[in-house]
Amino acid sequence: MALERWNRKLHFYSGLFLFLFLWLFAASGLLLNHPSWNFDEYWKNRRETNYEREISNPGPEVKGDLAQAHEIMRQTGIGGEILWTTTRTDTNVFDFQVRRPGHYFFIKADFARRVVSVRQADVNVWGVMKVLHTFSGVQLDDPRNRRDWALTSLWAYSMDGVAIGLIFMVLSSFYMWYQLPQKRVFGLIVIGVGSLACGVFCVGLRWFF
């Protein structure tokens, strides 16, 4: 009985705690699935600013592109996730991108002139939502990208937390349903229909085609 009671309590406690996270990922998932919708256009409506900052060239102790990018970001006061560094043909020139939800920084460092040119694009709330949905700092098809900002890691682990919460809510709902004998048959039919429809896409299509 205690298990039943706590299972039920934890089901809605986790739902309430994750409520806004669920809405964010659900709504942004819908937006990402419909690129033809216009009301949520963010890139065309971005606000761009360009500026230059003088910098001290990174010393010899700062080795590698990533360390140099961090040093430039420290001097210019820019924080965020480094997306990638391009291959350098001239050691005096260094281009890289930094992203954080709502802001994109396109950074060009000229070590000969000791100047950094920054093109900053700020996007609207729709852009923030879409980036939050995918802001993990890593990409399946590009192993060079690693998380290099603490807040990216925090957000990535919070996405894990939301996923764990969702899985728990699904499993706890199965338990609660099973405790209701009068609803078992119809519930089983409903789960069967859902599983069949989902299973067709997860494994069935490979069998059929």
């Binding site: 709902s173 609660m176 229909v193 859902g194 989902c198």
Partner: peptide, 15 residues
């Protein structure tokens, strides 16, 4: 209850 059960496999796929 029933809507939750219906979409539970999809939610598991996404989660």
């Amino acid at each position: 209850l029933y809507v939750g059960l219906l979409i539970s496999p999809f939610v598991l796929v996404f989660a």
